[in-house]
Structures are given as structure tokens and as C-alpha cells.
Amino acid sequence: MRRRWRSNSIGILFLSLIACAVLIALSATGILRPVEGIAAAPINFITGIFNRAQLSISSAFGESADIISLRNRIYDLEEQLAIIQAENIGLREIASDYERLADLLSYTSAAQDQELVTAEVIGLDTQSSVRSIIINQGTRSGIELGMPVVTQLGLVGRIIDVSANAALVQLVTDQNSAISGRLQNSRAEGSVVGRGLTNGILEMQHIQVDTEITEGELVVTSGLGGNLPPDLVIGQITSYRDFEFELSQSAQLRSLIDFNTLEFVLVITNFEPADISVFDEEDGTQ
């Protein structure tokens, strides 16, 4: 039995080896090339599928490596972005300042009869009951007490204190501020006082009873009293009160200036407040 198997197996193996050798010989000569091509097609197809899968896996691993490098790149870029954002904020500030200064410049061009000193608002009064601002120009720039302070939108206030390089400006909204005003349409006079402690608005008092007041009407400085030049815009009428039993009318005004965001102002330096105290003294002597 074993001998028979051995002879059979040797025979089979011998035949197989001969077949194999013939196959190698035929393949080496290239005769089997068309057959090989046809037979290889399905195997190549399957190999292609595996290869794509393998490439996907490899690229997934590669991508994970890319993700790490990209993450580091993002950190670097975020750092650069933060620096650029800080620079951008600075540039925006400059652009904003430029716009404001350009507006002031156009105002100064328009007001050619006025000598103006541009000042930056550097602080607010520390007393909450006082509505005043500190500017960065003082006597060295020719600023003196009582000089009017304006913007292109109108009157800001007056210099109430001054040092060599700084000055304190009393805002028109201050409770102690009183300015002679005039209604632009009716030309009626009145006294504009600040209501800074209550609601920040202005009130025009002592308007003649028969004066016709319209909402939205502008109020400008009258120049009476000699403290301020005439025709500086103080504000706009928002409402008025007309009681029959009162001898005068009063109106509420809103300044066109947002005092909370005020950054630059102009000081009119060629205006000298008139000193009328001498007349009071003369009256007193008489």
C-alpha cells in the first residue's frame, strides 16, 4: 500500500514537475503572454481594490501626521494673527483719529477767521458732580482761561483752568455752565444752562413768551456777555414748555456732540473774552 502510494505520488509529482517545467519554458518564450494577460485580469482587479484600500489606509496615517503639522501651523498662525490684530486695532485707532482730525481740519478751513489749537482729550474730571474734561494743551500752546472749546459739531465748553501743557474744559452740560444762546430761526435770546447731573441735556431758559419755538431748531451762541463768540452751535431743540402764567419760555436742547466719546477738540485761541466787570464796578461806584 505504502509502496503503491509512493510510486503514485512520485509519478504524480514527476508529471507535475514536467508540467511545471513546460509551463515555465512556454512562459519564458512569451507564448503564454496572451493567456497570462487574460488570467491576470481578475487578479489584478482584486489587487487593485486591495491596493486602493491600502493607499487609503496609508494616506489616513499620512493625514494624521499632516493634521499634527497643520495643528502646529495653526498655532503659529494664531499667534501671528493676534499680533496682526493688535496692529490692526492700532491702525484702526489711527484711521479713526485721522477721520476725526480731518473733520476738524475741514472745520478749521471753514472758520478761517479763527485761530484754533487742536487738543486731545486726556481725561475726565474726577469729581462726579463736575462735567469737565482735561485736554493736553495749555499755556504753551497759547491757551488761556475762558477760551471757547469746539468741535466741528459745535460748542464743547470753555477753559476754566489751564496749566503749561494741559487745560480743564467746563462742558456746556455742566450744572454751573451758563451760555447766552440764540434760537437760529426766531433769533430770540436765552440762557443755556447745563443739566449734566440729571440727564445730561441742556436747557434754554428765559426765552421770550411770544417766541415761536420749533422742535429741531438749532441754538447758537449769541455772543452776549462777551464770553463766547457768536454763532457757535450749542444744540438742537428737542422740546419746549410754554405756560401762560410764566413770564418766559424754556426749551430742552440736545447737543450734537457725544461728550462720552469725545477725543479731540479745538480751542479758539484768538478769542478774548470781554471783561465787563469794570462796568459793574463803575456802576457800583456811581
Binding site: S16, C20, L32
Partner: peptide, 10 residues
């Protein structure tokens, strides 16, 4: 060549 791998296996 075709069959080369078969030889060793056989």
C-alpha cells in the same frame, strides 16, 4: 515566468 513558484511548492 509562469510556473516558477509552483516548482518549489511541488
Amino acid at each position: 515566468p509562469l510556473g516558477s513558484s509552483v516548482m518549489g511548492m511541488l
